[in-house]
């Protein structure tokens, strides 16, 4: 933490602003912070509760930023940095306008798992993290909880804890939990019979509120205000509350991310009703990997496979 503050302090004159995380309404909820003055930097926090992927803000903030010649600083975890890579690949972000602080990530917390692991339910007054242990303080005292016990699903399958495309990496590299891509959660759903699978998704998707948090938290959902989910002309989905329209939206969302999704898992993290919507995108990522040996966002110079045409490609 001291390194992060000191590093940005020293550089701040050359930066327009820094996007990082600060403590939210409670220490368990770090929230994205847009720090525009040197004094603001003291609000920065970095720990396994810093879940939001900040690359989602980059296209918008770069579009609105004044041309001062100063760069925009942004803190990115490993998975966040892949999203940046994909945004650069597709021309939504000019890499040279950013100063990327890469933060090797020990994994992020699943709030539900943490609530279950805690013995106390009292409001949290302080959180710290060291050597794989979260220390959670409330009026009932301090509880130590192993991060490994309360990891988010996306982090259990993580093979990019160390940021790519960064100007500077602050902190020691983290050994990846996986060295090979892991699709065991997709496998589990695919092992179901067609009827079971249909019933499974109907049940899961029936809870969808159509709040579109999954869409808006996705750094690669670049249509923003032009999403077909709300378009009436042409009309793709109805406003009915049935599973049919919800299913259609989620299928379109997944297909639009084919060969583009960087597996940051934000769609699933933000879902208020706990639908494992990232599984759809993981399935797409697996196809991209098997078909083209392609992993979105890892090589900023690569052309995404569905945005090019190569007659020599086979197997399609």
């Amino acid at each position: 933490m001291d390194t992060l503050h000191a590093h940005l302090e020293a550089l701040f004159d050359d930066l327009e602003l820094v996007i990082g995380w600060e403590t939210g309404y409670e220490p368990l909820r770090p929230t994205p912070a847009f720090l525009r003055s040197r004094e603001d930097l003291s609000r920065l926090v970095w720990n396994p509760l810093c879940a939001p992927n900040l690359s989602v803000y980059l296209p918008g903030i770069l579009k609105d930023a004044k041309e001062t010649g100063k760069k925009i600083g942004v803190c990115l975890k490993g998975c966040d940095s892949r999203s940046l890579g994909a945004l650069v690949q597709e021309g939504f972000v000019e890499r040279e306008r950013l100063y990327v602080v890469g933060l090797p990530c020990p994994g992020t917390v699943d709030p539900e798992a943490l609530a279950e692991a805690r013995k106390s339910s009292a409001p949290v007054t302080h959180v710290s993290f060291r050597d794989g242990l979260l220390a959670i303080t409330s009026r009932d005292g301090t509880e130590e909880i192993e991060l490994e016990r309360v990891l988010a699903r996306r982090c259990r399958r993580c093979r990019h804890p160390n940021p790519l495309h960064a100007d500077v990496i602050l902190g020691d590299p983290v050994p990846p939990r996986r060295t090979e891509p892991s699709f065991s959660d997709v496998d589990a759903v695919e092992a179901m019979s067609l009827e079971e699978r249909r019933a499974y998704w109907e049940e899961e998707l029936s809870r969808c509120l159509r709040c579109y948090a999954c869409r808006n938290a996705c750094p690669l959902c670049v249509c923003r205000d032009r999403c077909l989910a709300e378009s009436r002309t042409p009309k793709w989905t109805t406003q009915r509350d049935g599973v049919r329209d919800k299913f259609l939206f989620h299928m379109i969302h997944a297909l639009h991310l084919a060969g583009r999704c960087t597996e940051c898992g934000e769609c699933e993290r933000v879902c208020p009703v706990g639908i494992p919507v990232a599984l759809f995108k993981e399935k797409m990522a697996r196809i991209a990997l098997e078909l083209w040996d392609y992993q979105a966002g890892t090589d900023p110079a690569a052309t995404p496979p569905l945005q090019t045409f190569d007659p020599s490609e086979t197997g399609i």
Partner: peptide
């Protein structure tokens, strides 16, 4: 408004709950 809302994702979650 920017200071408070730059981080908002403009989804509909807050209004729906």
């Amino acid at each position: 408004w920017h200071a408070h809302i730059d981080k908002c994702l403009s989804c509909g979650l807050c209004t729906f709950v």
